[in-house]
Nucleic acid binder design. Structure first.
Lengths: 206, 206
DNA sequence: TAGATTGTTAATCGATTAACAATC
DNA sequence: TAGATTGTTAATCGATTAACAATC
């Protein structure tokens, strides 16, 4: 649709805007300028305008941005305007936390299946979901149209799980295990790497 | 010590190098070139050399880098060569996961205290740690010399906890709550933001 | 209309990559 | 020594910021 590739830096700022806009909306604020947005988020207003202008003309000169309209537009850009089924692999503490977390959110990303290979966990429930044996993953992914997989298993199992997810036809992976996953071209992997965050944080200690 | 500021992008790559070097070391590999490193990590070798050269001359021309020596040096740079006590606020599923995670790691970052405000949780144990009431935070932080605080509480409590941590003298915060924290100058905050990762991942879906 | 704010072009800044002399 | 690889300088690339005409 859009010829020029949008940089990842831009894409990662959109959810930040979205979150703050949603907050403004909850306060009943109808309009916001890039100036105000920039002040609150500690960002350059020109950057915000430029980021948004990549995708269309969402603002109104002399006025600013209509909050609900901009929320709608950003959600469209991020493809959050349609339901996206996720699955979770690994029903440990982290898995539970993630399940509860996405369960109570108001967006269209929803965990619809949970897998584990521990017989003690299989069959137990997290919220409305029953923990399924990992062997059921391929069929369930197809049956439920699951598009994103979340890996919340120990490091030594992560690559196997990734292979299984990719084989099942998953399109993107969010990986919590502290390992570099290798996946085929076209499958996007994001890392939620606590180790990396803590290590880089340590550097900045006085 | 070093006059020119090192960019955050560089700092965030160091733990990536460190992880892979540690893996190589576990295999008994003694020496590695920026070329090999770059191939395995999907990075430009020149970038790796330049990153490292910011901090000193760690390599050997014609040979490459001594793996154990480089590990030692990166650990020094990141201040991981000395024990850094952490505390965790929020003993939910995420808190449990983080506790177990840092407990079994071989680095010097160690959670040494856990706090919660839920009477049902206070007094219970996570590994060797007893969950303490949040009121004990200031004294415990001082007594144990805690330098980094991890926030794993619901969004609406996060800012209060951040204020409490800063007040207690914490120097850095890792925040898992999906809110923008406001802290005074000099306190570094990193975000481990699952929402942001999932939202940006959704964009890249085909 | 006058004031405000966008969208966009141009200028600046910084980061990545390439190239190569130094040297192990 | 010859081959390999670093550390570093120079070239390239891309992202951020500033400036401003367009216009609500």
């Amino acid at each position: 649709m859009k010829a020029p590739k949008i940089s990842d830096a831009v894409i990662r700022r959109l959810p930040v805007y979205l979150r703050y806009l949603t907050y403004l909306d909850s306060l009943g604020v109808k309009t916001v300028s890039s100036q105000e947005l920039g002040e609150k988020l500690g960002m350059n207003p020109a950057q915000i305008r430029k980021d948004l202008a990549h995708f269309g003309e969402f603002g109104c000169k002399g006025v600013g941005y209509d909050v609900p309209y901009l929320i709608e537009k950003i959600r469209q850009i991020l493809k959050l305007d349609r339901p996206i089924p996720l699955c979770l692999v690994g029903a440990g503490h982290l898995g539970h936390a993630l399940c509860h977390y996405t369960m109570y959110r108001q967006d269209n990303l929803r965990i619809v299946a949970v897998f584990d290979n521990d017989p003690a966990k299989i069959g137990r429930e997290i919220g409305v979901l029953r923990i399924q044996p990992i062997e059921e993953l391929p069929d369930t992914v197809k049956a439920k149209g699951i598009r994103i997989g979340i890996i919340a298993v120990p490091a030594d199992a992560a690559q196997r799980v990734a292979d299984l997810l990719v084989e099942a036809g998953i399109e993107a992976i969010l990986n919590f295990a502290p390992v570099n996953l290798r996946v085929k071209e076209g499958v996007r992997v994001h890392h939620a790497d606590v180790t990396l965050e803590l290590h880089s944080l340590a550097y900045y200690l006085p």
